[in-house]
Design a binder for these strands. Structure first.
Lengths: 235, 235
DNA sequence: GAGTGGTCTAGACCACTTC
DNA sequence: AAGTGGTCTAGACCACTCT
């Protein structure tokens, strides 16, 4: 574990515990470097993470200050649906509608940036949350990149298999949220008696080795849909 | 302009121009440092931005590689609605429904983390995009933090006034996206003949001096709604 | 002018990957 | 063993804010 991560964790602990109260000024960089027995740059790196997370503001000429933390819960979209639901204490059940591997269609080839003739898993699942069929997930993954998927992993958590089973890390994901009226199949799977507005979350996701490993479309019931995110300026 | 930003811009230019082709390996850190006449750390900082933006992958023991860029357009949610629409070539017109300052209600005090007795602007606008009333924006801002708003700024772009007029920078924003059925007022303002599903984007935004300056709820017609975002793991 | 962060350097050491 | 990134240091200089 790098030293700047340890320092980041320690400083974060001090902020959330109230040891450094809200709006208080942190010790200057030199002092922190002395306390933690490290260079100022290492302190800067630790504080930069806290700045990105919104716990701290640093202003040149002024100092570093504890910011009032965000009221919204941090939503980690780099985890899968299963982990996200369980963290918020919901009961999730998965119905596997389709699960097989086939040669990628042209559309999927393009979305997953595959050259040609590659096999992809085609997975369709309905996620039942607290007894309500809430999400239809259509997932495509290249067999070459995510080998060894089986019925049991698909029934539970694919993300868990990728991180625990294969030892990969998810680096980033890109999402587009849109809405329209459910078609017949969607209405049936979500158990809607009449066509209704549904929310689509289209996603592509990358591993930290740079490989695009997932293209998915999640179709949500509008009334159980909630999506939180934050944007922070860098550079 | 810091040197690492110049180098970042130059490297990005080389990637998008194809000078460094997709999947090619970049020169190693030492070589780049020599070419750009700087230290390796400065190269690392420049490359780190490109990694965050998804243009480059660096792997210890292997090297730095050009990644296939994301197909989705980068959506900058730290700009206002006006700038976002204009960048995508749409025609935007603003109808100001309400604009006044008043003492903050308890709810707004809490959302904007105000102590007591503070004045806030209460602004309600309808954004007409390409001739269709598409978004209702309810905006609250503390008068103390954003002084001098007037009818003309509210009719055009508040964000433009904040950055150009007041010289502030927006540091971060937090959004929650949900959906439900439009109420009577919303139906009227969006010119919906019957109640329909609408998408709500609830936002709080911070300036780079750490001040919370905006709480807003934007209510979108579902069929013109599109929201793109990306998540990248840090640390 | 004093206090504070932001950037930058030159070099060191370590961790990881491939051969 | 060779090649590559990731982390870290000690110190320098500059930019910004307040008095």
């Amino acid at each position: 574990m790098p030293k700047y991560i340890d320092i980041y964790n320690e400083l974060k602990k001090r902020i959330v515990s109230g040891y450094y109260p809200q709006n208080s000024q942190l010790p200057e960089g030199k002092k922190l470097a002395f306390f933690f027995d490290c260079s100022e740059l290492t302190i800067t790196r630790a504080l930069n993470i806290l700045v990105k997370e919104g716990f701290v503001v640093r202003k040149r000429g002024l100092g570093s200050f504890v910011k009032v933390p965000f009221n919204a819960s941090f939503t980690n979209h780099l985890k899968g649906t299963t982990a996200r639901c369980m963290e918020s204490g919901q009961v999730i059940e998965t119905r596997v509608i389709e699960f097989f591997a086939l040669p990628a269609s042209e559309e999927i080839q393009e979305k997953l940036q595959l050259s040609s003739d590659e096999m992809v898993y085609s997975i369709m699942r309905v996620r039942v949350i607290n007894g309500i069929p809430s999400i239809i997930e259509r997932t495509y993954m290249p067999v070459r990149i995510i080998p060894g998927l089986n019925n049991s992993t698909v029934e539970h958590s694919i993300y868990n298999y990728i991180t625990e089973g294969l030892g990969y890390n998810v680096h980033s994901s890109h999402m587009i949220v849109t809405a329209n009226i459910s078609n017949e199949q969607q209405s049936e799977l979500l158990e809607l008696s009449v066509p209704e507005v549904v929310i689509h979350v289209e996603q592509t996701a990358y591993l930290d080795n740079g490989k695009l490993f997932e293209y998915s479309i999640a179709t949500h019931r509008y009334n159980t849909f909630k999506f939180a995110t934050e944007f922070i300026r860098y550079n």
